[in-house]
Structures are given as structure tokens and as C-alpha cells.
Simulated scan of single mutants.
Amino acid sequence: MIAWLGGQGNVISLLIPLFGICLLSIVDRVTETNRARRYFLSGFVLWFGCRVVLGLEQGTLVSFPRPIGLLGALSLLIGFLSLTFYGYYVVQTGRDPLASRLAP
């Protein structure tokens, strides 16, 4: 099964975003992050998806055509970066502009 994801190095690199997902699931119960958790959590899920796509492209289970796999991984990485930076912005400003528009 490790060969499906491109070897041991790719499986170990999957643990970093998976650890971030688990940490953000626990941290919400400990502290309030001004609703920025949803951006960070979505960002870590996209990063995990990017690592899975790259691992599958190098592995033996699924072989994406080269432009589709790389473009998919690149778009997931750009989504991760944009959501993470927006999450930092929300934490720094102390409020979520989207949620404040929905409140009566």
C-alpha cells in the first residue's frame, strides 16, 4: 500500500498536513480562534489533497496524465496558500468579515 502513494517518503510527508488537521480539530475545543479555524482547516485539507495527488502520480495505483496531475496539485497548493493567508488575516484583524455580514 505504501507503493500506491509513491513510497515511504510520500507517506511520511502526508503526516504533516494530517497532523495539522488533527491539531485544528482539537484546538477549537481549547481556545477560540475568531472563526479562522475553518480557513486553516480547509487549507490543511487542500494541502493533504495536494500531497495525495503528488503521491498517487508517483505511485503504482493511479497514474494521472502528467499535465492533469501537476495542474491539480498546483491548484490545490494555491488554494492551501490562499486559505492559510486569509486565515492569518482573520486572526490578525480579530473578526471574520463574512460572518459579520450574516449576523443580524
Rank of each mutant, 00 (worst) to 15 (best):
M1C: 02
M1W: 03
M1V: 04
A3E: 14
A3Q: 12
W4V: 00
W4Q: 02
W4K: 00
L5G: 02
G6V: 04
G7K: 00
G7L: 00
Q8D: 03
G9L: 07
V11M: 04
V11L: 08
V11T: 02
I12K: 01
I12E: 04
S13A: 13
S13F: 10
L15K: 01
I16E: 01
I16C: 01
L18Y: 00
I21M: 11
I21Y: 02
I21N: 05
C22V: 14
C22I: 13
L23D: 01
L23N: 01
L24S: 02
I26T: 07
D28V: 07
R29H: 13
V30N: 07
V30K: 14
V30L: 15
T31V: 11
T31P: 00
E32D: 15
E32P: 02
E32S: 14
E32R: 09
T33V: 11
T33M: 14
T33F: 08
N34K: 15
N34D: 12
N34H: 14
A36L: 04
R37K: 07
R37H: 06
Y39T: 03
Y39Q: 08
Y39S: 08
F40V: 03
F40Q: 02
S42F: 11
V45W: 07
L46S: 12
F48L: 15
G49F: 01
G49T: 02
C50R: 12
C50Q: 14
R51A: 09
R51M: 10
V52C: 10
V52S: 04
V52N: 03
V53Q: 05
G55H: 03
G55F: 05
G55I: 03
L56I: 03
E57S: 12
E57I: 00
E57R: 13
G59L: 04
T60R: 09
V62M: 15
V62R: 09
V62L: 15
R66V: 11
I68H: 09
I68K: 04
I68Y: 13
G69A: 08
L70A: 12
L70T: 12
G72E: 07
G72N: 09
G72Y: 02
G72M: 15
A73G: 14
A73E: 09
A73M: 08
A73W: 11
A73Q: 09
A73N: 10
L74S: 13
L74G: 08
S75F: 14
S75P: 01
S75W: 12
L76A: 11
L77M: 09
G79Y: 07
G79D: 06
F80K: 01
F80I: 01
F80E: 05
L81T: 11
L81R: 04
L83E: 05
T84L: 08
F85Q: 07
F85P: 00
Y86F: 15
G87D: 05
G87T: 07
Y89L: 09
Y89T: 06
T93K: 14
T93H: 06
G94W: 10
R95G: 05
P97F: 12
S100Y: 06
S100R: 12
A103I: 07
P104G: 13
